[in-house]
Design a protein around this nucleic acid. Structure first.
Lengths: 102, 102
DNA sequence: TTATAATATGAATATATGTTCATATATATT
DNA sequence: AATATATATGAACATATATTCATATTATAA
């Protein structure tokens, strides 16, 4: 029988994983993603709902967009953001559930 | 019918979740936890294996211990660390698998 | 074209974080 | 008791990060 040895961690995977968790490591970004559970929202809508600076929200959304955790569509002057990574959203949901039971 | 509305995020849960993901957001800590998939290891063993400063490993282990992601036992001069949060370790494993397929 | 609204961007800044260095603590050995 | 080994700790430092401010961009409406 072979040992159930865990595979090596290559540099690229390590970077990707750490970046993804970094996205989830900030309260503001968690709140934004948490909001997007309910569906797409405009930047100003997110900012109002969470009582955040528009610029701040825009910066954070860019961060999330670069990691492809969210996507957007434009409708006139308004840009609607929505989730774009089921796996990460599921992990976030699980972790919130897990943490909220304490 | 009611809408499937997502519950509010209270301050404490938000903090806990962000802290947990912060633990997973650093490459060094990911490498340490990844090593611990295979079982308990001493501080010096971790440091050697990952080619890290002993002090650095010690600091990171303290961080992980404070979040109860790892636990330790002493045997003489040696202290052995091991994983202590199945849920988080499962999430890490999933995320590594997910990321390594790209 | 001018004005208005929604969003994005870059610079500035304060704070957080990761790592190293020097040293302290705890245990074992002689 | 003196020495050696394993780990922990605190200070220092460099870098990263989150937020704000001022302004640019893009699209609509007057």
């Amino acid at each position: 029988m072979e040992e159930n040895k865990i595979a090596e961690l290559d540099e690229e995977t390590l970077f990707l994983v750490s970046q993804t968790f970094k996205a989830l490591a900030d309260p503001t970004r968690i709140r934004i993603l948490h909001l997007l559970f309910n569906g797409e929202l405009s930047v100003s809508n997110i900012a109002e709902t969470l009582d955040l600076n528009q610029s701040n929200v825009s910066h954070q959304l860019r961060f999330l967009k670069n990691l492809r955790l969210v996507k957007y569509r434009r409708d006139g002057k308004t840009i609607y953001y929505s989730q774009d990574d089921e796996h990460v959203m599921k992990i976030l949901q699980q972790s919130i559930d897990h943490a909220s039971h304490h």
